[in-house]
Amino acid sequence: MKKGDIVIILTVVIISIFSMLSIIYSNSYTNEKDIVIKVGGEEIKKISVDDKTNSIYDFNFGDEVGYIEIKAGKIRMLEMDKSICPNKICSLTGWIDKKYETIICIPNKIAISIENIATEHQELDEVSY
């Protein structure tokens, strides 16, 4: 290997490491999140939380009431009566804390997801078709 090859390899490695660190930093820019609860595709509640939020929130769907627990920036759906949610998959999903995770209750058409406030309000750099 020549001296020029080593310089090129080190440059590529340094650029790769810098790129990975910038992606990690941009995704963890803030601990603030919006919890969005949708029933039948319609947003019924939006809750702003951070890593210090510890609370239980209720929401209405049809004639019933559901509950979510928020603890240290993580969210989970509390168990509902078997007559309302027979398989209890939504409560068995457990804790979620990332933007790409969602809690779904198919029988009741409930979707609980996380939106990161920092990335939601950033401008687009580029659009491709």
Rank of each mutant, 00 (worst) to 15 (best):
K2Q: 09
K3H: 05
K3R: 09
G4R: 13
I6K: 13
V7R: 08
V7T: 07
I9Q: 04
T11W: 00
T11D: 01
T11G: 15
V12A: 12
V12G: 00
V12P: 01
I15N: 04
F18S: 14
S19E: 04
M20S: 13
M20A: 10
L21Q: 03
S22Y: 08
S26Q: 13
N27K: 14
Y29I: 11
Y29L: 07
T30C: 00
T30K: 01
K33L: 06
K33D: 00
D34N: 11
D34L: 05
E42N: 12
I44Y: 11
I44S: 10
I44H: 10
I47D: 01
S48C: 06
S48G: 06
S48E: 13
V49L: 00
D50Q: 09
D50F: 04
D50V: 15
D51Q: 09
K52W: 02
N54A: 05
N54F: 07
N60R: 13
F61K: 03
F61Y: 15
G62P: 03
G62Q: 05
D63A: 06
D63F: 02
E64A: 13
G66D: 01
Y67H: 12
Y67M: 10
Y67N: 13
I68W: 05
I68R: 04
E69V: 01
I70A: 08
K71G: 00
K71D: 13
A72W: 07
A72C: 04
K74G: 02
K74L: 09
I75Y: 02
E79L: 14
M80P: 00
K82R: 12
S83L: 08
I84F: 08
I84N: 06
I84H: 10
C85H: 02
P86A: 09
P86L: 04
N87Q: 11
N87S: 14
K88E: 10
K88A: 07
I89W: 05
I89A: 13
S91M: 03
L92C: 08
T93E: 10
T93D: 05
G94T: 02
G94D: 05
W95Q: 00
D97M: 06
Y100E: 14
Y100L: 11
E101H: 04
T102G: 06
T102S: 12
I103V: 06
I104M: 11
C105H: 01
I106T: 07
I106P: 02
I106K: 13
I106H: 12
P107M: 10
N108A: 09
N108Y: 07
N108C: 03
K109H: 09
K109L: 09
I110W: 11
A111C: 08
I112M: 05
I112T: 05
E115L: 07
E115K: 11
E115T: 11
E115M: 07
N116T: 12
N116Q: 13
A118S: 14
E120R: 09
E120V: 15
H121G: 07
H121M: 08
L124P: 04
D125H: 03
D125S: 12
S128K: 14
Y129V: 14
